[in-house]
């Protein structure tokens, strides 16, 4: 029964979201949370740094920041919402400490340098999901389920009309858009 498998796979993908409250239990201690609208630009710039505009539009054009704000509010439990906004702030504080600027005011090179350092940062407890991974999960989900991501960056085939069990592909063949 593959149907179950397929959904299992999606459950795994979304599992990050479901599991995260536990994973994040001991995450960075953060100042009291507060949320958009002033954080929206920060989210936008961070998302665009992860999924930039290339031959297809990037995260900013795909409205990923709005998706994240919504997903955090509607899908994260209260404690995790607070932690997310808190960690977003403290991440920007860390950027300020390193560059003397907020992430939104940094140059492309500074952003890359800061994210490179951020992603190499290891947590003391390996069960914790680092903020950068939470952010990436949200950016990826928001981007590739957006109209731009799903229909331009991927190969969207809403009505395949048939099943081809085997086809040859090239190294640059795009994935079919997952449709749940």
């Amino acid at each position: 029964m593959t149907r179950r498998d397929a959904f299992q796979r999606i459950a795994l993908l979304l599992g990050g979201i479901a599991l995260a409250p536990e994973l994040l239990a001991n995450a960075l201690s953060a100042p009291a949370p507060f949320c958009p609208p002033d954080r929206k630009r920060l989210l936008e710039e961070m998302a665009e740094t992860i999924i930039p505009t290339t031959d297809t539009p990037g995260a900013k054009d795909a409205g990923v920041a709005d998706f994240i704000a919504r997903a955090v509010e509607f899908c994260f439990p209260k404690a995790r919402q607070e932690r997310f906004w808190g960690e977003l702030n403290s991440t920007d504080d860390a950027c300020f400490k390193k560059t003397g600027k907020s992430f939104v005011d940094c140059s492309a090179e500074e952003r890359i340098a800061f994210f490179t350092e951020l992603q190499s940062r290891k947590r003391s407890d390996k069960n914790e999901q680092p903020f950068f991974n939470t952010l990436k999960m949200l950016v990826l989900h928001g981007y590739f389920t957006s109209e731009i991501g799903a229909s331009q960056a991927l190969n969207y085939d809403p009505v395949p009309g048939g099943w081809t069990a085997d086809m040859k592909i090239e190294p640059d063949t795009k994935a079919w858009t997952p449709v749940f």
């Binding site: 890359i112 960056a153 994935a175």
Partner: peptide, 29 residues
Amino acid sequence: GGSAERGAAWTSGAYKEGFGADFKAAMTR
């Protein structure tokens, strides 16, 4: 019961190293 298929790379991308243009390209495969 079971199946063997290829999903889209992005669905497991949150734990893969990287960000930026090359990362994006890899995530579309």
